[in-house]
């Protein structure tokens, strides 16, 4: 099932990449240290700051991978790479995908868990008011998030052209942003709206003005419902690319629902299936004839 050579080689490659290692060290250690040394975080609540770690880690990692993609595209022209040597080996393509996914997951999870451990041991979480159960739930949560992020990245990296890979990474970054920070979007989004921000916008009359004047003036009479539909699609796509799971909330909610877990699991499966299908369908040009 798992191709051990590909798995080990991918981990070695990531560890060998100076830019990625720099970003991982910065994210894994520098940011938590700065927060440990500066425990007062006046503007952000405890839970929000904890979420911000995940997103900052993902974003920075993606910026690095995007930079890497640009470099690769420029040097190789997106045509000649070493994939033909791999896909002609006795290896099922899904084995390649699984190995890549697990290798990427291993690195992301390792850094994420180290970060979580540092914040726990230093007592930062306790100072921010997180209970022991919340902190404990953070460990498996980070493993699940790591597997999920790695599956989407694996799917993106299986795309046949460097330009598509780059588009995929940018889409992922945007999706992550929407998924995490959707509450700050001015118009109400289904099931993602923060009560506070809605209240503020409502008090200021911004939403009414947007609904009745701005949007119809720009896009026509049914503009608001169109925007709402678009926003729903956007949020759904964002949830697919960067699904969120909060284990503590999940296990303390009544009634208990498996839905978030199933959503993440199905997204992972879907990403890996798409990646395998792309790898099976795509062509490998090792040289322009």
């Amino acid at each position: 099932m798992l191709s051990k050579p590909i798995y080990l080689q991918t981990i070695k490659k990531i560890l060998n990449h100076k830019m990625i290692m720099f970003a991982l060290i910065m994210l894994g250690f520098f940011i938590p240290f700065s927060l440990i040394l500066n425990p007062q975080n006046p503007s952000v609540s405890a839970v929000e700051s904890w979420d911000a770690f995940s997103i900052s880690a993902m974003s920075a990692l993606l910026i690095v991978t995007a930079t890497n993609s640009i470099g690769t595209a420029l040097t190789l022209g997106g045509r000649s790479d070493y994939m033909p040597l791999i896909v002609t080996r006795p290896l099922h393509r899904f084995q390649y995908i699984i190995a890549k996914w697990l290798a990427l997951s291993t690195v992301i999870i390792a850094v994420s868990l180290l970060q979580q451990t540092m914040l726990t041991v230093s007592g930062a979480y306790a100072r921010w008011g997180l209970t022991n159960e919340m902190i404990l739930a953070g460990f498996p949560e980070r493993i699940i998030s790591g597997l999920s992020v790695a599956s989407v990245l694996t799917m993106i990296y299986s795309l046949p052209k460097q330009s598509l890979v780059l588009c995929g990474i940018i889409a992922f970054e945007i999706a992550t942003g929407i998924s995490i920070f959707s509450m700050s979007i001015a118009f109400p989004l289904p099931e993602q709206t923060s009560d506070v921000s809605t209240t503020i916008v409502t008090i200021l009359g911004g939403d009414q003005w947007a609904k009745t004047t701005l949007l119809p003036a720009i896009f026509g009479g049914r503009a608001f419902s169109s925007v709402q539909q678009y926003a729903t699609i956007l949020v759904n796509v964002a949830n697919f690319l960067a699904p969120q799971i909060h284990l503590y909330d999940m296990f303390t909610a009544k009634p208990f629902l498996w839905t978030p877990f199933l959503e993440v699991a199905s997204n992972m499966l879907l990403s890996l299936t798409i990646a395998s299908a792309i790898l099976n369908a795509r062509e490998y040009h090792y040289d322009s004839d």
Partner: peptide, 22 residues
């Protein structure tokens, strides 16, 4: 392949060991 475009961060020995495993 016509244009050998190998993983340039590997040593020759590591590269052949990798393909031996594959």
């Amino acid at each position: 392949p016509e244009r050998p475009n190998f993983e340039n961060w590997l040593t020759a020995r590591e590269f052949i060991e990798y393909h031996h495993a594959l």
